[in-house]
Design a protein around this nucleic acid. Structure first.
Length: 598
RNA sequence: GCGCCUGUAGCUCAGCUGGAUAGAGCAUCGGCCUUCUAAGCCGGCGGUCGCAGGUUCGAGUCCUGCCAGGCGCGCCA
């Protein structure tokens, strides 16, 4: 992707420097570098050590062998041929043959003016300049409240979506509602059985039913809305139902028998009423929960809509057209082994029923038909065995292997006072996302969830997350923001005012090492966002903000901002104002607030 | 058994898709508030980057083989 690189207007100084080096290489091709295939791009990277300048290029090292010259000699030839640039103060050759670039003061401080001018858009690419991207995340079965594991998917997915949007993608946020299938029947039946108990029927609740207290709440609502209209005798309900596990039977057969009883005894309309009670109440709860968490969707996509519209068969037809299906043993299969899967997967069982995979194929067909060229799916780590078949299906449908990007989120372990909390959805003994949010607050929860790479299991320490101490990185960053705000309040109390134009004109006065470090940090932000987006790595933003806050706090302690020298004072206020802006922008992407006062 | 993820300081983790002397936080030890909020700062201690080979100017990073931990391997959803 080519970007304009002519001047400081360029988003990335790297691009400008790369052009300079490429031009130098080009000129050298008529001399020392004749007969050599030149690369289309050269690597420009930021230096880790200020002693190495601002940027470094390793092209002399990589080309030395082909050129048959020592790296340092080659570097010298490149430097001698390098076009002049108003942005480059000096160029040095260092170490084994690195070319180190030192920027002019003007180039170093130019970022301040841009941040102050661009404000909340600083670091963001032009909206909608990238591909149409659908990010699907959480998509938990609506069988109960979200637990802390879903919370990680929510925070991660929301931040990834924000990052992609900041990188210019046209982003659509979607929740896939698994409202079809056996789990939902178990939910509906569980609600009905609690309803029957509330009506006075006595029996032992099935081991495989949903045990949570919320089921009883929904049953109570059914009573207040419909009285005992759905009441049936327990003996009738349990008639001919296989024994439960507690009675030496099979819990799966038991619950399936109860589902059949429910459907038979209630009839389609009343069964639907009970079913919908469970589904809508839980979905409403999930929706509210996520909204309170700052996680919002453009669309809640119903699996049932695929079933009703025969989309599953349409999807299967499309797969058939790709030539990667087969009929065997009375079932229809997708030959996912063509795409690296361990075995082929069933789409339609020999009994004629569609598998869950058939729904997923239909869903992804639907996504593609809606015009999305980039699909990001965020799943729990326990679904990783599923990637190959879905990715294979998307590849079969599109002919491309880079359309679908599946990201897994590893498990969350919750610790309270050093003790690990056990979680099991079915037993009802789990800690919900809502409980977590209420205990540690949304800001800490959002930050902690994305602080670590999604690839590593997360140990979430409740005591740490809610401690208002310097152990807590989210406060550390927010505090930097609040401190800048406080400086501006103090400025007024001291009778000063902020002259931004004067400050920008005086930016060359910012020569302290703390100031130069901050300037460099601020310049990194746009490319960090770009990289965090392409790598779907929100944790790099979290770490960046931590580092930026660190740089600010050090600066704060080392130097006074509200000095009598007006030029210097205004220049420093410009700098810390820019820091505040970038912290604000970054925290916003993470879904964390930036308080003005703490 | 096969597949995916992980292994870096006492603990929790980064490490910019191969760069220069491997970094933070916590813990621990020692300093800094009559000066813009000490929810802060400065310094010390702490490493065989799981192990062994390989690739090359250069490897925590890439390749191979082991070791350890987590997860997943249904005509379930």
């Amino acid at each position: 992707m080519a970007r304009p690189v002519s001047s400081l207007e360029s988003v990335f100084m790297k691009d400008l420097l790369q052009q300079l080096v490429l031009q130098a290489l080009d000129s050298l091709q008529s001399g020392p570098l004749a007969d050599i295939d030149l690369p289309d791009a050269v690597q420009i990277e930021r230096t880790r050590d200020a002693a190495h300048g601002d940027y470094a290029c390793n092209v002399a090292l990589t080309l030395a062998k082909k050129a048959g010259k020592p790296p340092r000699d080659l570097a010298q030839a490149i430097v001698d041929t390098l076009p002049a640039s108003g942005e480059v103060e000096k160029v040095e050759i260092a170490g084994p043959g690195f070319i180190n670039f030192y920027l002019t003061k003007h180039a170093q401080t130019a970022v301040i003016g841009r941040i102050l001018a661009e404000g909340e858009t600083y670091g963001r690419a032009a909206t909608g300049s990238g591909p149409k991207t659908l990010v699907e995340f959480v998509s938990a079965n609506p069988t109960g409240p979200l637990h802390v594991g879903h919370g990680r998917g929510a925070a991660f997915g929301a931040t990834v979506a924000n990052l992609l949007e900041a990188a210019g993608h046209d982003v659509h946020r979607e929740y896939y509602v698994n409202d079809a299938g056996r789990q939902m029947d178990i939910l509906g039946t569980s609600v009905w059985l609690r309803y029957l108990q509330a009506c006075g029927e006595t029996f032992s609740f099935p081991k495989n039913g949903y045990q949570g207290d919320y089921i009883g709440d929904y049953a109570a609502e059914l009573i207040s809305e419909h009285g005992e209209a759905f009441r049936r005798n327990a003996s009738e309900v349990f008639e001919a139902v296989p024994a439960d596990e507690a009675d030496g039977g099979d819990k799966e057969a038991h619950i399936d028998g109860l589902i059949a009883s429910a459907k038979r005894l209630l009839g389609p309309d009343d069964y639907e009423t009970v079913f919908q009670k469970g589904l809508t109440r839980i979905l409403d709860d999930i929706r509210d929960d996520l909204a309170e968490f700052g996680v919002n969707y453009d669309e809640w996509f119903s699996e049932r809509s695929l079933v009703v519209n025969d989309a599953r068969d349409t999807g299967i037809e499309r797969l058939k057209a790709s030539g990667h299906t087969k009929t065997e043993e009375g079932a229809l299969w997708f030959k996912s082994t063509d795409y690296g899967d361990e075995k082929d997967r069933v789409l339609i069982r020999s009994n004629g029923e569609h598998t869950y995979f058939a729904s997923d194929v239909a869903y992804h067909v639907n996504k593609l038909d809606r015009g999305y060229s980039h699909l990001v799916d965020i799943w729990g780590a326990d679904h990783h065995g599923y990637i190959k078949r879905v990715a294979g299906a998307v590849q079969a449908l599109t002919g491309h292997d880079d359309v679908l990007d599946v990201r897994l989120v590893q498990f969350v372990s919750l610790f309270r006072g050093g003790e690990k909390q056990q979680m099991s959805t079915r037993s009802g003994e789990f800690i919900t996302l809502r409980e977590l949010r209420e205990e540690v607050g949304n800001d800490a929860a959002r930050f902690f969830y994305v602080m670590r790479s999604n690839d590593v299991p997360l140990d979430f320490d409740l005591e740490l997350a809610k401690s208002q101490s310097n152990d807590n990185p989210v406060y550390y960053i927010q505090y930097a923001h609040a401190r800048v705000c406080r400086v501006f309040e103090q400025m007024q109390e001291k009778g000063f005012s902020f002259d931004q134009a004067n400050g920008e004109a005086a930016l060359p006065r910012l020569a302290e090492s703390h100031e130069e470090a901050l300037l460099t940090q601020l310049t990194r932000y746009p490319e960090l966002l770009q990289q965090a987006a392409t790598q779907t790595a929100p944790h790099t933003l979290a770490h960046y903000l931590r580092d930026l806050a660190d740089g600010f706090h050090s600066y704060y302690n080392a130097h006074q901002f509200l000095v009598d020298d007006a030029d210097l004072r205004n220049a420093r206020l410009c700098l810390i104002s820019a820091v505040r802006q970038v912290i604000y922008n970054g925290l916003t992407l993470l879904g964390v607030s930036a308080p003005e006062r703490m």
